[in-house]
Design a protein around this nucleic acid. Structure first.
Lengths: 112, 112
DNA sequence: AACAACAGGCAACCAATGGTTGCGTCCCTG
DNA sequence: CAGGGACGCAACCATTGGTTGCCTGTTGTT
């Protein structure tokens, strides 16, 4: 059974710049392409593109405010992403544990 | 404080094809570029490239066996990757909880 | 009211990368 | 020893993360 992950959501949080943007948005509450780019090593345009993909997968919402476009994180969607992260982690972890248990069993049977 | 992630490791498991390759390798114990490509919707060459990046970040090891190159997962490194996944997940989760708590506190004070 | 300054959006361009096809090479095996 | 299977290499294409340059529009200050 494949882990049935929403690949779009994954690849959205797969990019390091986008992860840091989410971090900043969570820390500050909200932000614009300009304010985010000031705290990141990339240009405003790069940030704007990333905000576009985050918006398309629903991880952020935008509200126009005069000449600004304020973005803020969608808590529910980020929680969903976190859940998927833990799912994959747990799956791999379970497989690793099982392998380890088998390895120990083999070793025990050899010691007998 | 930035979450101090090894971006190489993260982007290695960020690709959906590579995640499925790890799944397959864990399920089968080991595999070659050919056997993996038979279970994936991509060509052997694409798989070979992915195995290259997985090998470079230490998530798999390769042992030549005649005309075959058998790959298998490095348990320790995958465990490390899983740990990083949970770290980021936990960080975001904590931020979400804090935000939720603050929101609840505000609502309570308004209800008074 | 007018104008400077600031925030965004577009478009063109570049580099890296996930993916393909085609071909050469080498090792196994009948 | 000859054929076929498994690998590696090279060229090529599309997507994408990133840049610079320019234009539009809001703001707010004089």
């Amino acid at each position: 059974m494949t882990v049935a992950i929403n690949d779009d959501l994954w690849s959205a949080i797969g990019d390091p710049t986008r992860r840091r943007m989410l971090d900043l948005l969570l820390a500050d509450g909200d932000g614009t392409a300009t304010t985010l780019s000031e705290q990141l090593p990339v240009t405003r345009q790069a940030v704007a593109k990333h905000l576009g993909v985050l918006d398309r997968v629903g991880l952020v919402h935008v509200t126009p405010a005069g000449r600004e476009m304020r973005y803020r994180v969608d808590d529910a969607q980020l929680a969903r992403a976190v859940a998927q992260l833990s799912t994959v982690g747990a799956t791999w972890d379970a497989r690793l544990r099982r392998i380890k248990r088998i390895a120990e069993a083999i070793q025990c049977s050899q010691e007998q």
